[in-house]
């Protein structure tokens, strides 16, 4: 009896060991978790789920989204950093990752994670009420230079909209009153209520409000016009270097093996040629913007540097 059980144990040990070895060789072989640093129902969550669905079809294993919005995304990042670097725990986050680090909310730099790919971008606009006298960014800048600290920009302190307003002030050399107005929907309400002169709005939301004739877009903060709203001029074409996208990025834990990174990244690269998925992303106001791991790394370093410079210049660095 004893020998039998000892024998059985040995067999189990060998089988399970070799099975785990097979697992390591043939990535992916089980469920992949994508930690989304935003709550369910928002735009980040929606694009995370679309990416997850595409990866599921490409890799043939379940890919699930786990929402951890706590601490403005710190919790999701923390979970990923402490996960085993086996490719089964990934992080989906955007420019907020840099903001969190530079404002001292979370102590680990996003550059310490393993970049896998950039995926979808949400373009941001600088918008004003339709009754505003400003037609272009130039009008605003001239007016604001003549009246420093007069006009109110609605943003959320310590979030990406805060840094967008700083980028505007920095590039145009103007001074605005930065008022905390909460999330996008609250900001829209305050703009319409006349408590704010300027807000940041996503292209998707701005398009609706422009169509409803209650809002005017002064500039899209990107290098190229957004295909979702080709009528909106960019800040760059108006002569102001304000580039501030919410670029969603897929990360892995630190020291994720490059074979695993390439499997995921290569699978994602194929999304570009799938019109169904491109349309799905466009419906939620996202534009496909894939970069390979090296490209992603360079992009993140650049973005990290820009946010860091703004944080330092405006005294937010902690």
């Amino acid at each position: 009896m004893r020998r039998l059980s000892a024998g059985l144990l040995t067999v189990i040990l060998i089988v399970s060991l070799s099975w785990s070895l097979v697992g390591a060789a043939g990535y992916p072989s089980s469920t992949i978790k994508i930690m989304v640093a935003a709550k369910a129902g928002g735009a980040t969550d929606a694009s995370g789920r679309i990416i997850a669905q595409f990866l599921r079809e490409q890799l043939g294993v379940p890919v699930v989204v786990v929402n951890q919005e706590g601490g403005g995304g710190s919790v999701a990042t923390d979970t990923t950093i402490h996960a085993k670097p086996d490719g089964y725990t990934l992080l989906y986050d955007h420019v907020n990752a840099h903001v969190r680090y530079h404002t001292g909310l979370y102590g680990v730099s996003p550059l310490d994670l393993t970049p896998i790919a950039t995926t979808a971008a949400v373009n941001q606009t600088i918008a004003t009420d339709k009754n505003s006298p400003w037609q272009t960014l130039d009008d605003l800048v001239k007016d604001a230079k003549a009246n420093p600290k007069k006009y109110a920009f609605g943003m959320q302190t310590g979030a990406s909209s805060h840094f967008l307003s700083l980028a505007l002030m920095d590039a145009a050399g103007i001074e605005l009153r930065l008022l905390d107005a909460g999330f996008e929907a609250d900001k829209l309400a305050a703009l319409r209520g006349g408590q704010l002169n300027l807000i940041q709005a996503t292209v998707g939301a701005a398009r609706e409000y422009v169509e409803a004739d209650i809002m005017r877009v002064l500039a899209v903060c990107a290098t190229q016009r957004d295909p979702l709203a080709p009528d909106f001029p960019t800040a760059v074409e108006q002569g102001y270097d304000i580039v501030f996208q919410s670029m969603h990025t897929l990360y892995g834990p630190p020291e994720l093996p490059s074979e695993v990174v390439n499997v995921i990244s290569d699978a994602l690269a194929k999304l570009e040629t799938d019109p169904d998925y491109i349309e799905k992303l466009q419906k939620i106001g996202h534009v496909w913007g894939y970069r390979n791991p090296e490209g992603t790394k360079a992009f993140l370093q650049d973005e990290f540097g820009r946010i860091g410079r703004l944080a330092e210049k405006f005294g937010l660095k902690k």
Binding site: G70, G71, G72, S74, V75, D78, Y106
Partner: peptide, 9 residues
Amino acid sequence: MVPLSAGIN
């Protein structure tokens, strides 16, 4: 503690 940055649930 990072988890506490989310506040008390």
